[in-house]
Amino acid sequence: MSITQQMDEKIAEIQAELAPKFKYVEQFRQQYFKDTLIHAVLIAAVLILVALTGIDIFFVFGLGSLGGVYLTYRQYTYTHKVKEEAIKPMAELLDLKYIPSGSYDILQQAKQANIIPTYNRGGVEDGFIGKVKDTEFEFTEAHLKYESGSGKNKSVKRVFDGGLMRFKLPYHVNEDVLILTDKGMFNSLKNMTQKFSGMQHIALEDPRFEEIYQAYGTDQVEARRVLTPLFMDVLANLKERFDIKIANKSSGLSIGRKSCDIQMLFSGNTLLLSLNYKGDYFEPGLMYKSLDVDWISDMVEDFALMRFIASSLKVQQHNYAHTQVK
């Protein structure tokens, strides 16, 4: 049985185990929404009654705002419940540790590595930590904005809504290797700018990988040690998977983007990867909407792929590690 078939079976097992939890969360949502609806009607009725008594209109607005705060709190509680009851168990079944606040450390490292756009506002949430054999990896979701101008000219642009991954490599990379999503006709420009930083384009033999990505490095051989045929295949699968999800407007990934932008850097003992899928992947949505059954199932497959990336790093270089680790 191939690794893909074995993985599919294992994923199906995990998905089946999660199904009852998901059903419970959906039942909770329905009841919670009903309660919230009743509360909203009661709040509205109170407001109307208070307004009819001829009381100051500002007092009514004040009460209305408090009602709004209450409903926001209900939404927040619902989101928290979904994360606790569905995402956390999903992470545990995949042997991952879920950290709702995410990791700022990865964001800082990604910024230094220059694999995310320039930003001056934003934060992180929904972090996951895992290990495959000796390869440790982390994921965190980041939402970044760039604010420019002031006063009337002030504009805020969303520059990154996606995942950041960090893999601790089981070997040391002596020369940095940068991989960017292929930019079609703009590649020549990118090649020139990379040349200024001392990096050259690495032409690789996998046509699928070459169509999707552009690799740069200062050492042609070192780049090929890192970008093994298996690893190139895994990276091509990652991009194709997220492009399909974006095209299908999968839950959490529908902020309007045609494809997923992926950038990564191998440096020292670390592989950093940014996955700009323009979404808020771990948000279950508003409580009046039914939970998407495919949402958690997709998440299981995504994290299985992440584990596979980590394992392919290990499998490829198991002996290299021994002599190259510094």
């Binding site: 033999e205 070192e222 090929r224 040690r225 270089q317 002996n319 021994h322 002599t323």
Partner: peptide, 24 residues
């Protein structure tokens, strides 16, 4: 064996670079 395997991996990477250069 480890040293030998390390050299084999270096050869594999160098071979891929060489074949790409020859192809060009």
């Amino acid at each position: 064996q480890r040293a030998y395997q390390n050299v084999e991996e270096n050869i594999a990477a160098a071979r891929r670079f060489y074949n790409a250069a020859v192809n060009a």
